[in-house]
Write a protein that binds this DNA or RNA. Structure first.
Lengths: 239, 239
DNA sequence: CGCCTCATTGATAACCTTCAAGACCAGTGG
DNA sequence: CCACTGGTCTTGAAGGTTATCAATGAGGCG
């Protein structure tokens, strides 16, 4: 299901400093402003199906969407998180490579693919920014391959919480150490799909971390990390 | 250990039609020709360490290199294969994100990072090609995330053999069905690192597939697939 | 209240890893 | 020539981690 969403001027956009448009000059922003459309999706909505045409591409403004693949027998693996300012879509390719699903209510700032590609050609700044973002995504995907291939369930949970906590602190421009608190916006199922686990294992490992006072859970969806570095030490990182 | 390698003119380069330089016009090729250096590495050589400076970036001309991550306790996960024409390095970033290791003897066509970046700025064609290649890498990495997160050991082995068999058939320009034969160039350890398994599990699953006549092994390193589609059906693909 | 989704917890089982032993082969040096 | 060594691979037995199956609880909403 799709809802209309309030359209905000680019100058006041929350994703402005990190999105694909972040290096744009005022003239380019005006152009984007003219062709952009806001789209809001409810939690659970499928935004695009793997293999189907994607008529629009754009940035997440608010909320969380996921990229995921489904095997024939129903097994599912999330292969990417789309958080505010992240870009959805592959310019130059008409079809989606993966399912795109709204994990929470999510708002996109979208463009018709053809129009966006035309602007991209005329804006080396935006083109460059897109390359940077795609290379960042690639690094993130590869880090996640390490998690999926080699980390234990406990380490996977810790890694995810560290990732979300770090992202939260960055956005709030707070130090990423000591006490960190943030809302877990996604369900256990979404966590399991992302971590390559089952919801039961996710639940058990969260409980275990809670029993060890490495985290606290507030009504299932709020996370408090009393000592960020202590949790990070459980995430099986490289050093 | 590093060996000198014969320097070939770009016009006659085997990677020319698929590498980052594939869309370059003659003037750009001349420029690249002037600043390129060939480097050859022996199987097992470490080409770059994660976190260290990478003074050169460039394309694989021949052989296989892998990108991999190592956790503090020695667990290792391969996160990318570099095959001929693939690009190594992240323009704009001085340090390697992962270890780069020669899986076989491998030859690179390399450039000083700064010089390459300068050319990149002046060549929208090459810039565009680089973006395409990075987005391809991203899709491949995400497909592999599905394997690492959800597939069984048997499916992982089948997937790898199908991948290698398909590439072999493509290069030989033969149909990718019926009987397919190719050399396994890599060790069981390299397979295990790529598949997120142990060498024992790799060995057992290969033996199991052999017992079921889905594959034949010739002296441990040659693979014969009597019925490609039958093996593909064991790979746990999406449909 | 009944019904739904989401989450937790327990019991059991499956799969893969770990530990261990041995085969095979190539290279090396006595 | 042969013993010795190191590397690669296979196979077996045992154990651990996670999945599966099942029951229950908590919270939202008609």
């Amino acid at each position: 299901m799709q809802f209309p969403a309030v359209r905000v001027g680019c100058q006041h956009c929350g994703a402005r400093n990190r999105a694909v448009c972040s290096d744009c000059v005022p003239a380019e922003l005006e152009e984007l402003d003219r062709i952009k459309v806001y789209r809001r999706f409810a939690a659970g909505d499928t935004i695009a199906w793997a293999g189907e045409r994607m008529p629009m591409i754009g940035s997440v403004i608010e909320g969380v969407a996921v990229l995921s693949a489904t095997l024939s027998d129903g097994r599912r693996q999330t292969v990417g998180l789309l958080l505010p300012s992240d870009f959805l879509g592959r310019p130059g390719r008409a079809r989606a490579g993966f399912d795109v699903v709204a994990a929470t209510e999510v708002t996109f700032c979208m463009f018709r693919t053809a129009e966006f590609e035309r602007l991209l050609e005329q804006s080396p700044r935006m083109f460059n920014r897109l390359l940077e973002m795609k290379m960042d995504e690639l690094d993130v995907a590869r880090e996640w391959m390490v998690l999926l291939g080699r980390k234990t369930a406990r380490e996977r949970i810790a890694s995810l919480l560290v990732l979300l906590g770090r992202r939260e602190a960055e956005i709030a421009e707070r130090p990423v150490s000591g006490r960190v608190t943030f809302p877990l916006r996604i369900t256990r199922e979404a966590m399991a799909d992302y971590l390559g686990l089952t919801i039961e294992t996710v639940s058990r490992q969260l409980s275990q971390l809670r029993r060890e006072h490495l985290i606290r859970l507030v009504e299932n969806r709020g996370v408090e990390i009393p000592d960020f570095d202590a949790l990070a030490a459980e995430s099986g990182g490289p050093e």
